[in-house]
Protein backbone atom coordinates (compact mmCIF):
# COMPACT_ATOMS: atom_id res chain seq x y z
CA UNK A 1 0.00 0.00 0.00
CA UNK A 2 1.23 3.49 -0.71
CA UNK A 3 2.59 5.39 2.18
CA UNK A 4 1.05 8.82 1.88
CA UNK A 5 3.65 10.62 3.93
CA UNK A 6 6.79 10.22 1.88
CA UNK A 7 7.02 12.60 -1.02
CA UNK A 8 10.64 13.33 -1.73
CA UNK A 9 10.98 12.82 -5.41
CA UNK A 10 9.28 15.05 -7.90
CA UNK A 11 9.66 14.39 -11.54
CA UNK A 12 11.60 17.15 -13.18
CA UNK A 13 8.91 17.94 -15.76
CA UNK A 14 6.59 18.93 -12.95
CA UNK A 15 9.03 21.48 -11.64
CA UNK A 16 9.51 23.42 -14.83
CA UNK A 17 5.93 23.47 -16.02
CA UNK A 18 5.04 26.89 -17.46
CA UNK A 19 2.74 29.05 -15.43
CA UNK A 20 -0.93 28.21 -15.65
CA UNK A 21 -2.77 30.52 -18.00
CA UNK A 22 -5.52 31.41 -15.58
CA UNK A 23 -3.02 32.24 -12.86
CA UNK A 24 -1.14 34.30 -15.36
CA UNK A 25 -4.27 36.25 -16.25
CA UNK A 26 -4.92 36.89 -12.61
CA UNK A 27 -1.43 38.10 -12.06
CA UNK A 28 -1.61 40.25 -15.15
CA UNK A 29 -4.90 41.71 -14.02
CA UNK A 30 -3.53 42.48 -10.61
CA UNK A 31 -0.45 44.07 -12.08
CA UNK A 32 -2.43 46.14 -14.54
CA UNK A 33 -4.61 47.43 -11.74
CA UNK A 34 -1.45 48.67 -10.15
CA UNK A 35 -2.15 46.97 -6.88
CA UNK A 36 0.05 43.90 -6.94
CA UNK A 37 1.14 44.45 -3.39
CA UNK A 38 -2.33 44.95 -2.01
CA UNK A 39 -3.68 41.71 -3.43
CA UNK A 40 -0.71 39.42 -3.24
CA UNK A 41 2.87 39.57 -4.31
CA UNK A 42 3.50 38.28 -7.81
CA UNK A 43 5.47 35.10 -7.46
CA UNK A 44 8.44 35.68 -9.70
CA UNK A 45 9.76 32.09 -9.84
CA UNK A 46 6.34 30.90 -10.94
CA UNK A 47 6.19 33.43 -13.75
CA UNK A 48 9.62 32.40 -14.97
CA UNK A 49 8.64 28.76 -14.85
CA UNK A 50 11.38 28.05 -12.36
CA UNK A 51 10.97 26.40 -9.06
CA UNK A 52 13.69 25.64 -6.60
CA UNK A 53 14.52 21.95 -6.50
CA UNK A 54 14.64 21.92 -2.72
CA UNK A 55 11.10 23.27 -2.49
CA UNK A 56 9.78 20.85 -5.06
CA UNK A 57 11.24 17.86 -3.24
CA UNK A 58 9.21 18.57 -0.16
CA UNK A 59 5.93 18.68 -2.04
CA UNK A 60 3.32 16.02 -1.72
CA UNK A 61 0.19 15.79 -3.84
CA UNK A 62 -2.35 13.15 -2.99
CA UNK A 63 -4.17 11.24 -5.66
CA UNK A 64 -6.06 8.02 -6.20
CA UNK A 65 -5.99 5.39 -8.89
CA UNK A 66 -9.01 3.20 -9.60
CA UNK A 67 -8.85 0.10 -11.77
CA UNK A 68 -12.30 -0.56 -13.19
CA UNK A 69 -11.38 -4.13 -14.10
CA UNK A 70 -10.70 -4.93 -10.47
CA UNK A 71 -13.87 -3.49 -8.98
CA UNK A 72 -16.32 -6.20 -7.95
CA UNK A 73 -19.04 -3.78 -6.84
CA UNK A 74 -19.15 -5.07 -3.27
CA UNK A 75 -19.81 -1.55 -1.96
CA UNK A 76 -17.50 -2.01 1.03
CA UNK A 77 -15.84 1.31 0.19
CA UNK A 78 -19.13 3.20 0.37
CA UNK A 79 -20.01 1.52 3.66
CA UNK A 80 -16.58 2.09 5.17
CA UNK A 81 -16.71 5.73 4.16
CA UNK A 82 -20.00 6.18 5.95
CA UNK A 83 -18.57 4.50 9.04
CA UNK A 84 -15.37 6.48 9.00
CA UNK A 85 -16.70 9.92 8.21
CA UNK A 86 -19.95 10.19 10.10
CA UNK A 87 -22.04 10.33 6.94
CA UNK A 88 -25.83 10.00 7.44
CA UNK A 89 -27.22 6.58 6.54
CA UNK A 90 -29.89 7.88 4.16
CA UNK A 91 -29.31 6.71 0.61
CA UNK A 92 -28.67 10.22 -0.74
CA UNK A 93 -25.56 11.29 1.10
CA UNK A 94 -22.34 9.77 -0.16
CA UNK A 95 -18.70 10.74 -0.21
CA UNK A 96 -18.08 7.71 -2.36
CA UNK A 97 -20.44 5.35 -4.12
CA UNK A 98 -20.37 2.60 -6.74
CA UNK A 99 -22.26 2.77 -10.02
CA UNK A 100 -23.17 -0.19 -12.16
CA UNK A 101 -23.06 0.34 -15.90
CA UNK A 102 -24.91 -2.01 -18.23
CA UNK A 103 -24.39 -1.33 -21.92
CA UNK A 104 -26.99 -3.28 -23.77
CA UNK A 105 -26.60 -4.80 -27.19
CA UNK A 106 -29.11 -2.28 -28.55
CA UNK A 107 -26.86 0.57 -27.40
CA UNK A 108 -29.05 1.57 -24.48
CA UNK A 109 -27.05 2.43 -21.37
CA UNK A 110 -28.49 1.63 -17.98
CA UNK A 111 -26.82 2.98 -14.86
CA UNK A 112 -27.82 2.44 -11.27
CA UNK A 113 -26.40 2.75 -7.79
CA UNK A 114 -28.95 1.46 -5.26
CA UNK A 115 -27.93 2.86 -1.87
CA UNK A 116 -24.56 3.69 -3.37
CA UNK A 117 -23.89 -0.02 -3.85
CA UNK A 118 -23.74 -0.69 -0.10
CA UNK A 119 -26.47 -3.33 -0.21
CA UNK A 120 -25.20 -4.91 -3.37
CA UNK A 121 -26.72 -4.83 -6.85
CA UNK A 122 -29.85 -6.81 -7.67
CA UNK A 123 -29.54 -8.95 -10.80
CA UNK A 124 -30.10 -6.85 -13.89
CA UNK A 125 -33.05 -8.09 -15.90
CA UNK A 126 -31.55 -8.29 -19.31
CA UNK A 127 -33.53 -6.79 -22.11
CA UNK A 128 -32.02 -7.26 -25.48
CA UNK A 129 -28.78 -8.74 -24.18
CA UNK A 130 -25.79 -7.19 -22.52
CA UNK A 131 -22.79 -5.96 -24.47
CA UNK A 132 -20.58 -4.85 -21.57
CA UNK A 133 -21.15 -4.36 -17.91
CA UNK A 134 -18.92 -3.16 -15.09
CA UNK A 135 -18.77 -1.17 -11.87
CA UNK A 136 -17.44 2.36 -11.43
CA UNK A 137 -16.52 3.65 -7.98
CA UNK A 138 -17.01 7.40 -7.72
CA UNK A 139 -15.78 9.95 -5.24
CA UNK A 140 -14.58 13.54 -5.11
CA UNK A 141 -11.89 13.96 -7.75
CA UNK A 142 -9.95 16.45 -5.64
CA UNK A 143 -9.53 18.54 -8.77
CA UNK A 144 -6.47 20.66 -9.20
CA UNK A 145 -8.76 23.31 -10.70
CA UNK A 146 -11.66 22.60 -8.41
CA UNK A 147 -14.80 24.49 -9.51
CA UNK A 148 -16.24 24.11 -6.02
CA UNK A 149 -13.28 25.92 -4.48
CA UNK A 150 -13.47 28.59 -7.13
CA UNK A 151 -17.08 29.44 -6.36
CA UNK A 152 -17.03 29.36 -2.55
CA UNK A 153 -17.80 32.98 -1.65
CA UNK A 154 -16.10 33.01 1.75
CA UNK A 155 -13.13 30.67 1.46
CA UNK A 156 -14.75 27.88 3.46
CA UNK A 157 -13.62 25.25 1.00
CA UNK A 158 -10.05 25.08 -0.17
CA UNK A 159 -7.22 22.98 -1.57
CA UNK A 160 -4.55 22.08 0.94
CA UNK A 161 -0.85 22.15 0.15
CA UNK A 162 -1.01 18.41 -0.47
CA UNK A 163 -3.86 18.68 -2.94
CA UNK A 164 -6.87 17.61 -0.86
CA UNK A 165 -10.07 19.60 -1.30
CA UNK A 166 -11.57 20.18 2.14
CA UNK A 167 -14.50 22.01 3.72
CA UNK A 168 -14.13 24.16 6.83
CA UNK A 169 -17.34 23.17 8.58
CA UNK A 170 -17.02 25.93 11.12
CA UNK A 171 -16.79 28.59 8.44
CA UNK A 172 -19.15 27.35 5.71
CA UNK A 173 -22.22 29.56 5.39
CA UNK A 174 -24.21 26.84 3.64
CA UNK A 175 -25.04 28.64 0.39
CA UNK A 176 -24.80 25.48 -1.68
CA UNK A 177 -23.00 27.09 -4.60
CA UNK A 178 -20.25 24.47 -4.41
CA UNK A 179 -22.85 21.70 -4.65
CA UNK A 180 -24.04 23.29 -7.89
CA UNK A 181 -20.54 23.84 -9.21
CA UNK A 182 -19.31 20.26 -8.78
CA UNK A 183 -19.67 18.44 -12.11
CA UNK A 184 -19.38 15.05 -10.43
CA UNK A 185 -22.16 15.25 -7.87
CA UNK A 186 -19.54 14.63 -5.19
CA UNK A 187 -20.79 17.21 -2.73
CA UNK A 188 -23.83 16.97 -0.52
CA UNK A 189 -25.48 19.13 2.05
CA UNK A 190 -25.38 17.88 5.62
CA UNK A 191 -28.94 17.92 6.97
CA UNK A 192 -27.70 18.14 10.55
CA UNK A 193 -24.68 20.42 10.38
CA UNK A 194 -26.21 22.56 7.58
CA UNK A 195 -22.90 22.80 5.74
CA UNK A 196 -21.54 21.34 2.52
CA UNK A 197 -19.80 18.01 3.00
CA UNK A 198 -17.60 15.88 0.78
CA UNK A 199 -14.85 13.31 0.58
CA UNK A 200 -11.69 14.47 2.37
CA UNK A 201 -9.46 11.65 1.11
CA UNK A 202 -9.85 10.74 4.82
CA UNK A 203 -7.51 13.60 5.64
CA UNK A 204 -7.58 12.67 9.32
CA UNK A 205 -6.32 9.20 8.42
CA UNK A 206 -3.56 10.55 6.19
CA UNK A 207 -2.42 12.72 9.08
CA UNK A 208 -2.00 9.54 11.13
CA UNK A 209 -0.14 7.71 8.37
CA UNK A 210 -3.11 5.61 7.21
CA UNK A 211 -4.74 5.31 3.81
CA UNK A 212 -8.35 6.43 3.21
CA UNK A 213 -10.99 4.07 4.58
CA UNK A 214 -12.27 3.13 1.11
CA UNK A 215 -8.76 2.11 0.08
CA UNK A 216 -8.24 0.25 3.34
CA UNK A 217 -11.29 -1.94 2.83
CA UNK A 218 -11.20 -2.46 -0.92
CA UNK A 219 -10.82 -6.25 -1.09
CA UNK A 220 -9.47 -6.36 -4.63
CA UNK A 221 -7.12 -3.37 -4.45
CA UNK A 222 -9.17 -1.67 -7.13
CA UNK A 223 -8.33 1.58 -5.35
CA UNK A 224 -4.78 2.79 -4.88
CA UNK A 225 -3.78 5.83 -2.92
CA UNK A 226 -0.56 7.77 -2.90
CA UNK A 227 1.52 10.71 -3.90
CA UNK A 228 1.03 11.44 -7.58
CA UNK A 229 4.39 13.15 -7.81
CA UNK A 230 6.32 10.29 -6.33
CA UNK A 231 8.14 8.04 -8.75
CA UNK A 232 8.40 4.84 -6.78
CA UNK A 233 5.08 3.90 -5.30
CA UNK A 234 2.21 1.66 -6.39
CA UNK A 235 0.21 4.64 -7.61
CA UNK A 236 3.08 5.81 -9.80
CA UNK A 237 3.35 2.31 -11.16
CA UNK A 238 -0.39 2.30 -11.80
CA UNK A 239 -0.23 5.63 -13.61
CA UNK A 240 2.68 4.45 -15.69
CA UNK A 241 1.47 1.08 -16.85
CA UNK A 242 -2.19 1.72 -17.47
CA UNK A 243 -4.04 3.81 -19.95
CA UNK A 244 -5.43 6.48 -17.69
CA UNK A 245 -8.58 8.52 -18.00
CA UNK A 246 -10.21 11.08 -15.77
CA UNK A 247 -13.89 11.95 -15.60
CA UNK A 248 -15.24 14.83 -17.73
CA UNK A 249 -11.82 15.99 -18.92
CA UNK A 250 -13.44 18.60 -21.20
CA UNK A 251 -14.34 20.65 -18.14
CA UNK A 252 -10.63 21.15 -17.41
CA UNK A 253 -11.02 20.47 -13.71
CA UNK A 254 -7.83 18.38 -13.70
CA UNK A 255 -9.00 15.56 -11.44
CA UNK A 256 -6.59 13.66 -9.24
CA UNK A 257 -8.65 10.50 -9.25
CA UNK A 258 -7.32 8.46 -12.15
CA UNK A 259 -9.21 5.60 -13.76
CA UNK A 260 -7.69 2.67 -15.59
CA UNK A 261 -9.76 0.68 -18.08
CA UNK A 262 -12.57 3.20 -17.92
CA UNK A 263 -15.31 2.89 -20.53
CA UNK A 264 -16.00 5.92 -22.69
CA UNK A 265 -19.64 5.90 -21.67
CA UNK A 266 -18.87 6.72 -18.04
CA UNK A 267 -19.65 10.25 -16.93
Amino acid sequence: MASPADGRDWESRETCEPVDRRDFLWEALKASLGVPIALSVVRVPELCGMQEESDAGAERIYGMGIDIRKCIGCGRCAQACKNENDVPDEPYFFNTWVERYVIRSDGEIVVDSPNGGIDGFPPYKEEGGTLRTFFVPKLCNHCEEAPCVQVCPVGATFITDDGAVLVDEEYCIGCGYCVQACPYGARWFDPVKHVARKCTFCYHRLAKGKVPACVEVCPTSARLFGNVGHRANPLAHFLRFNEIQVLKPHLNTKPKVFYANLDGEVR
Binding site: N83, E84, L166, T200, Y203, H204, R205, K210, A213
Partner: peptide
Protein backbone atom coordinates in the same frame (compact mmCIF):
# COMPACT_ATOMS: atom_id res chain seq x y z
CA UNK B 1 -9.38 24.22 9.78
CA UNK B 2 -6.80 21.83 8.34
CA UNK B 3 -5.63 20.91 11.83
CA UNK B 4 -9.14 20.40 13.15
CA UNK B 5 -10.02 18.18 10.17
CA UNK B 6 -6.79 16.23 10.65
CA UNK B 7 -7.75 15.68 14.28
CA UNK B 8 -10.97 13.76 13.53
CA UNK B 9 -11.04 10.36 15.24
CA UNK B 10 -10.25 7.15 13.37
CA UNK B 11 -12.78 4.38 12.95
CA UNK B 12 -10.72 1.95 10.87
CA UNK B 13 -7.44 1.08 12.58
CA UNK B 14 -5.80 -0.27 9.42
Amino acid sequence: AVDSIAAYPLQYAG
